[in-house]
């Protein structure tokens, strides 16, 4: 695919040229960097530090109306689902882009989910090569790479004064066309520089785990007493699941607000006891031990069984943000060494 060069000081012009898209980018709010719809390119924060949340919510929102009920209680799809303006998510890290790759089969297969797929198809992902990984990043251990274009439509690499812009897909090509006025061709020197950066990136990842054989170890030692030890610190909050780029579990609730009822889907977390609680009061996963084990089982066994890859992109958020330092990589090592 084609390669371009984008001068950093012309980034705003490039974003402005995307007038046919709704542009989501990391913005700084209340001391946090979060992905939000921007109206002014200047809002975009592209230092890419401190993103506690993945851009998952742009395509799979935390709360989403599935159906609206009219006054006769007949169910209808909400207006605006079809014919939405295409979206661009700017500043996606390669691990988060792979996260969408992990979500795709869940929502595509068997019963295609129109809510996810419609937004997914009309959303373009513009990624940034990760030149400075975080301390808990471990993407290279789960098949990722800080400079991987997988799942992205466009990949930008920071060369200092310019971005090296690689078009990955035909969707990305369309965007490059719209912003063509501010793009130029890279020199062969810049091309070499970019390749050098890509080559260096994986070495900067500090945390590693050889995941080979983990799936069978989890299966084999499913009833091991060690799981109890691993979950001792866990306080059953939803941070690991809500900040995870591949977690997709949801609840469906009918809610009535000011006389109007909607059926919504809302993220749910397998860390909550209510998640599996039967109406009869029976709970197949009553304690933190079963729940933590299930999460690791889902990521490193079930997902492989279902889709052939671990359901983890190694972004490290669940480790960094866990209030009690439940450390996925450390836990995997414990299981691996059983």
């Amino acid at each position: 695919m084609e390669h371009f060069l984008l001068e950093k000081n012309r980034l705003n012009e490039f974003l402005s040229a995307l007038r046919n898209y709704e542009v989501f980018a990391p913005v700084r709010k209340v001391g946090l960097t979060v992905f939000e719809l921007i109206t002014n390119p200047k809002e975009a924060m592209l230092d890419l530090k401190n993103q506690p949340q993945s851009p998952k919510r742009v395509i799979f929102p935390q709360s989403e109306i599935l159906l609206v009920f009219d006054k006769n209680n007949a169910a209808k799809e909400p207006k605006g689902r079809v014919g939405q303006k295409p979206q661009v998510v700017f500043g996606v890290r390669p691990c988060d882009a792979r996260g969408f790759h992990m979500l795709d089969p869940v929502f595509e297969r068997e019963y295609p989910d129109p809510y996810y797929l419609q937004k997914r198809q009309s959303t373009l992902l513009v990624g940034f090569h990760c030149s400075e990984p975080y301390p808990n990043c471990f993407c290279t251990s789960v098949g990722g790479n800080p400079s991987s274009p997988e799942g992205l439509d466009i990949l930008l690499t920071d060369l200092g004064e310019q971005y090296f812009l690689e078009v990955i897909t035909s969707k990305g090509e369309q965007v490059a066309k719209e912003g063509a006025a501010v793009l130029s061709s890279p020199t062969s020197q810049q091309q070499t520089e970019k390749e050098k950066l890509s080559g260096m990136a994986p070495q900067k990842i500090r945390r590693t785990i050889d995941t080979e054989g983990i799936a069978s170890k989890i299966e084999k030692h499913f009833d091991h007493s060690l799981w109890r030890e691993l979950s001792g610190k866990c306080i059953s909050c939803g941070i690991c699941t809500y900040t995870c780029p591949t977690c997709h579990c949801f609840d469906i609730q009918d809610e009535r607000v000011r006389g109007r009822a909607n059926r919504l889907r809302i993220w749910d977390s397998c860390m909550f006891p209510e998640y599996t609680l039967h109406a009869s009061g029976h709970n197949p996963r009553p304690t933190r031990t079963e729940r933590l084990k299930n999460r690791m089982y889902h990521k490193f066994k079930q997902n492989i069984d279902l889709y052939g890859v671990p359901g983890c992109v190694g972004c490290g958020r669940c480790i960094t943000l866990c209030p009690e330092n439940v450390d996925l990589v450390a836990n995997l090592k414990v299981i691996k060494n059983l």
Binding site: V106, F250, I252, C270, T276, L277
Partner: peptide, 13 residues
């Protein structure tokens, strides 16, 4: 039987 929400293998539980 288990608790179910979606019925189509997506909601996870």
């Amino acid at each position: 039987e288990n608790r179910m929400k979606c019925g189509i293998g997506k909601c996870g539980r």
